[in-house]
Design a binder for these strands. Structure first.
Length: 443
RNA sequence: GUGGGUGUAGCUCAGUUGGUUAGAGCGUGAGAUUGUGGCUCUCGAGGUCGCGGGUUCAAAUCCCGUCAUCCACCCCA
């Protein structure tokens, strides 16, 4: 067989132990958080029929769906997100008690142009929670509370949750006297406000044919800053007479009140009237989580309410809302910030030995330590002790237990704590307690 | 998808106006009187100079193409 160069498809990645060990811990924490809010897990297949996915994301998103060249190339695709597969699943299981609250931690695929430094990949893991079957804004507030708790638990410190409302956006477009069909183009420009500045936004708006009066109204709204309450109050002042906006304003006010009651700090929340979000299926509140610690980094999560999506699979419309944490992106950010406590190995203790060590007696000792709850690794070769210690050092194993013929004979063991250099020879039943007293508790 | 930059060792890079066996640091392997890690020292392994073509007596170096990758935009997790 001809040899091929070992390589990866751009935008995909291998995850090595140093990163995957902390990632697994984070997933365990997120899982506990999700379950604490009453969400239960599901998984769905990586591939779906193409027509299940088409017509849900909008033209921009649809271009990024990976279609599989299976049969005629028009039957299967890799899932693009977890929300549409969930809707399909619920449509196929009408017997599920509503509201159906599920979480799902699985990879998705997007034929994007990858940019790893910005946390942009073609394959990445999303952690979604969704509540299907209620219009209650408490469910939306719970979404905010769940992502807040989840991101905080990851060790990320600087982040904000931006919220807006699709109906409020529609009201703003109407308020400016623009046709509803113009919203996408206009809002995309306005969304760039904090990046390119006011003058540029005005220039671009007039370039796409928005008249000066409309620009004034839009920019006036976008420029409102301050606490969520202040922004809302100011928006009510300007849009209170706009029928299209009223419901959005009321929803946001209620949702934010519930979120505060659930313990989301005021300082984490921003009402951002320029937040649009590209996916077509959102109908109500929308949210996006951004880090304030890295320039030009993609969002850490996002979501919103999508009351019309379920009806696209036939049957009755079912209200639904959900939010997603971008696990791959969150981990990338933490690595970039040096906030990931990397560890090469999950091993607590290495059993080191000598040419004269009775192997089976030492293995029995390893088995005992495992029974006592330690992760124990056996050193296979009777190498120089120096080499065995170097191995433990490089893999970040905190303890080395030294077993020679004399220790085995006397029922003893020498134990060394590498971080402090402390070493004691003791009876073997004392080893577990000695190590446990020095093992830094896992966070 | 649009625009710009860069491809030399596992990683970060040097390589003079084209000129013999292409270098350094880090990492990695072995060792410094055979039961002790981090520091230091010695020695070693490792390169189709992204790939293809062209110019030339001679190309890592110049030209064309191609692929890969990075950055910004777009969009988002």
């Amino acid at each position: 067989m001809p040899s091929v160069e070992a390589r990866l498809f751009h935008g995909t990645r291998d995850v090595l132990p140093a990163e995957l060990l902390p990632q697994k811990e984070l997933v365990a924490t997120l899982t506990r958080t999700f379950e604490a809010f009453g969400f239960a897990p599901v998984e769905t297949p990586a591939m779906e029929f193409v027509d299940i996915l088409l017509g849900k994301y909008g033209a921009d998103g649809e271009k990024l769906i990976y279609k599989l060249a299976y049969e005629d190339g028009h039957t299967l695709a890799l899932r693009y997100d977890l929300t549409v597969p969930l809707s399909r699943l619920v449509a196929m299981h009408p017997e599920l008690p509503k509201p159906f609250k599920r979480y799902q931690i699985q990879p998705v695929w997007r034929a994007d142009r990858a940019q790893p430094a910005q946390g942009r990949f073609r394959e990445f893991i999303q952690c979604d929670v969704d509540t299907v079957g209620t219009s209650s804004l408490v469910a939306d507030a719970e979404n905010l509370a769940v992502v807040h708790a989840g991101i905080l638990a990851s060790g990320m410190e600087g982040f904000l949750i931006k919220v807006n409302h699709r109906k409020l956006l529609r009201g703003m477009i109407a308020h400016a006297g623009l046709p509803a069909t113009a919203d996408k183009e206009v809002l995309r420009v306005v969304d760039k406000l904090d990046k390119i500045g006011l003058d540029e936004v005005v220039a671009e708006l007039s370039k796409i044919g928005v008249d000066a009066a409309a620009i004034d109204k839009l920019v006036g709204l976008m420029n409102i800053t301050g606490t969520p309450d202040a922004v809302l109050a100011s928006a009510i002042e300007r849009l209170g007479a706009e029928p299209a906006a009223v419901e959005g304003l009321a929803d946001l006010r209620a949702m934010l009140g519930h979120a505060r009651a659930l313990g989301v700090p005021e300082a984490r929340l921003r009402v951002d009237l320029s937040l649009t979000r590209g996916l077509d299926y959102y109908t109500g509140p929308v949210y996006e989580i951004v880090t304030t610690e890295i320039e030009r980094f993609g969002s850490l999560g996002g979501g919103g309410r999508y009351d019309d999506l379920m009806s696209l699979f036939g049957g009755e419309p079912v209200p639904a809302t959900g939010v997603s944490i971008g696990l791959t992106r969150l981990l990338t950010a933490l690595v970039k910030l040096g906030k990931l406590k990397a560890r090469e190995s999950a091993t607590d203790v290495l059993i080191s030995r000598f040419p004269d060590t009775p192997v089976d007696a030492a293995l029995a000792c390893a088995a005992t330590l495992r029974d006592q709850g330690f992760a124990v690794e056996w050193y296979y070769e009777a190498d120089r002790l120096k080499k065995q210690f170097q191995y433990a050092e490089r893999k970040g194993i905190p303890f080395v237990v030294i077993l020679g013929a004399s220790e085995i004979e006397r029922g003893e063991a020498a134990v060394k704590h590498l971080a402090t250099g402390e070493q004691v020879t003791m009876t073997r039943d004392a080893v577990a307690g000695w190590m446990r007293a020095r093992l830094t508790p896992k966070a």
